[in-house]
Amino acid sequence: MPPRIRVRPRALCMRCTHASTPISTQTASYASIATASATVPAPEAHQSFRATAPIRLYPPTQPPSHKPPEVRKTQLHRQYQSLLRSSPLILIFQHNNVKAVELMSIRRELAVALRKVDAERIKNGQDPLADEIRLQIIQTNIFASALRVVEFFNPEEHITEQPEQQILTHGLSRRAHEIANNRKLKLELEPILSGPLAVVAFPSVAPQYLKAVMSILSPSKGDFPAPTRRANPDYYEPAVQQGLQKLMLLGARVEGKVFDVGGTKWVGGIDGGIDGLRAQLVHMLQGVGGSLTSALEGASKSLYFTVEVRRLDMEEKEKGSEEKKD
């Protein structure tokens, strides 16, 4: 389907009136010009046309894109951009020929585990996020391109240089494409973005959820134990287990920074998430405050002692000299 371009009748009318009777529209706009225009010859037709606001040939909700917008690739590109912009924490997996049944059962287990975390969060009065976290298989090259746009294209940049020209700020525009296509700029994630990839995106950095996801998708014995056979017998179905063998965690992108598997485990191991970290920080600062006051006190105390000792010393000396004089 070609892009719908609405023709605005008013814009067309403006063109017609300018071409036929330029003076009448010109005099009507400003009173001061109206007096002047009696002596000054009428401006040429194309000049008066420029003086009006530039006509936008597209609807405001559909700015023109560099690649044809009706293609699936373009829409995926846009979708991945919004995914990357909206999720600060993204886990990247490689999937090696995972079958549809296996993928389905893995997704089911993931949803079950996340719902458990949700129940805990609701008890604590925090908002649940489980519906927004899902395993998504991505088109690797389109994702890489979208990541380049997200990393390197800043829509606010150069926006004031040419005020009369319409500058497009969306991620599919030609400007975004040109900036992102600069091969001198290197992505940190570039070596990872090849081969078959899947992504788990989190709408916020929530280590609780990260922990749940890690313990389902890439369990390790120490930090992220898989659910026990008794607690969750479905997890040990052959479909799930065979699918998990083919899923490898490669790394993570946390708030623009790239972490390897060890780093991801570290992020997942933060107890209590951001609140836990805040508590730790407060604790630490309290400790620092205490030690700081004692340190300052110590300095003043020791100063007092030295001065006192010196005073006593001087007094003794004075006494000594007085005795000698006598």
């Binding site: 020929n97 070596p191 081969g195 790394g251």
Partner: peptide, 19 residues
């Protein structure tokens, strides 16, 4: 090492193993 560009064949080899 997934963060090295030279590990691409290793990962592709894994993806060539049938399901």
């Amino acid at each position: 090492n997934p963060f090295s560009l030279r590990s691409k064949p290793a990962r592709l080899f894994l993806s060539l193993i049938p399901p």
